[in-house]
Amino acid sequence: MSLILWVTLLGKFSFLSFLAVGGVMAVAPDMHRVVVDGLSLVSSEDFLAAVTLGKLSPGPNALFVAVLGYQIAGFSGALLIMVAMIVPSAIFAFYVTRWRQRNTHRLSVQSFAIGASPVVVGLLFSTAFILVKDFSEFSTLTCVVMVALIVWRTRLHLLLLMTLGALLGLSGLV
């Protein structure tokens, strides 16, 4: 891969990292436009495989970007693209956090902290709602509601819940 292509790719991903309000998955369609349609570095199927891997492996979903990098240029590609994706927005986040810490007495900062929290809770519900629409069977929906109630009301270990989910899926019940 030529140097110019690398600079273009990493530059575009750094730029996208600044647009990724609400998480990296929010800009996944734009990434598709860059690596599949624009630079044709990976196929559409590979892109989908990367997203799936990101979902089913532990850790932040944003790691699917590393799989894209891996598909393009192996391990070094994965590292480079992760740095491009994460470092610029992290530096920005760092300074905004510091600024907020120094200005907690300001009315605007306090209003923001209190005012934005219902929006964030609403976004969590939205994520769950969007994903739940993929499920149609009654047993699956029951399982979602049960898990939600357990997480809300009890302190049952989350890995236990995951294991149960895997077993239920294996037996074809959900």
Binding site: V121, L124, V151, G165, A166, G169
Partner: peptide, 22 residues
């Protein structure tokens, strides 16, 4: 199948976290 089951649980967890953070 396993992945499906785990993703079902993950959706429930997201919902549960929202309820908890209320």
């Amino acid at each position: 199948g396993m992945i499906k089951g785990m993703s079902v649980v993950a959706v429930g967890m997201t919902l549960g976290t929202g309820l908890r953070l209320l």
